[in-house]
Nucleic acid binder design. Structure first.
Length: 270
DNA sequence: ATGGCTTACAAAGTAAGA
């Protein structure tokens, strides 16, 4: 069956609930994973999602910042919220989609720490946290590897743009957090831990520019086009042959009072 | 000219994003 799944760093789900509704209406994903919901659990706008046909809702939020949520038209079970780095923050949520004739597909939704300004773990504890978070992801997925045929999708704002053409200027961003070699190495180790497949780059060659985030600070973000690919969709080898389409919904970045991230939409034949 | 903006918050400036 076809499965349409989207990931979007929404930068406040309450402020932009109208944009989320528009996105669901126009693009009709089966599953939407949100990051930076900035919303405590008791204030999550579940009603709007149910009204839009997304009856299956899981969230993991806190006051003020961070927060992830997964909403779905397909039933799911086995909700899991892992506390990476024992910070007590809200950066991970996993569910298992109940898909016919299969043991289910596990969807991991991540919001990896941004890492602050200075790319040096000795002087910047936010950067240390980011690297440690990635290292913990690596060891966690290594421990999953016993289940070699696990059918998993990993999405979210990973806050790392790994390839040269995942940023507008490789040279100018080498010392800018999100594109430094040490972050790229850490992310590569996470990928290797379960032989994750980079779904977005299956559809766009490595030599082509591909972004999901554009700063609010540019006067004209579309014209400057100084983007970065911070948001990702990965699958385990068991699902490597299932992706049939992928699109960055750049249009949504231009909607009135939009998030600084665009949604990424992928279709699978599961 | 990448940081110029944007968000949440028991609210004026602070923290956070990246």
């Amino acid at each position: 069956m076809p499965l349409k799944l989207a990931t979007w760093n929404i930068n406040s789900v309450r402020l932009r609930i109208n944009l989320v509704e528009r996105f669901l209406e126009e693009y009709q994903p089966d599953v939407l994973c949100l990051q930076e919901t900035k919303c405590p659990n008791d204030a999550f706008p579940s009603k709007a999602f149910r009204k839009a046909g997304y009856e299956h809702i899981a969230f993991h939020g806190q006051k003020g910042y961070h927060g992830v949520a997964t909403v779905s038209r397909i039933p799911f079970s086995d909700e899991e919220r892992r506390d990476f780095c024992e910070k007590g923050d809200t950066r991970h949520l996993a569910v298992t989609l109940d898909i016919d004739g299969a043991e289910g597909v596990r969807v991991h939704n991540f919001y990896v720490p941004a890492g602050g300004d200075e790319p040096d773990r000795e002087v910047n504890e936010k950067f240390a946290h980011k690297l440690d978070f990635l290292t913990e992801m690596e060891s966690w997925y290594k421990s999953h590897k016993a289940k070699k045929n696990a059918r998993m999708i990993l999405v979210g704002d990973l806050n790392v743009a790994p390839l040269e053409h995942d940023v507008w200027s490789h040279k100018q961003l080498l010392k800018v957090v999100s594109h430094t070699p040490i972050e790229v190495e850490h992310l590569a180790r996470v990928m290797k831990a379960h032989d994750w497949v980079d779904v977005m780059r299956r559809f766009v060659p490595d030599e082509e520019k591909l972004y999901t985030w554009w700063s609010y600070r540019a006067k004209d973000w579309a014209k400057a086009d100084k983007g970065r690919r911070l948001d990702h969709i990965w699958v385990t080898p068991a699902l490597a042959d299932t992706p049939t389409a992928m699109e960055v919904i750049r249009d949504a970045r231009g909607w009135e009072r939009s998030s600084d991230h665009a949604p990424v939409l992928a279709t699978f034949d599961i």
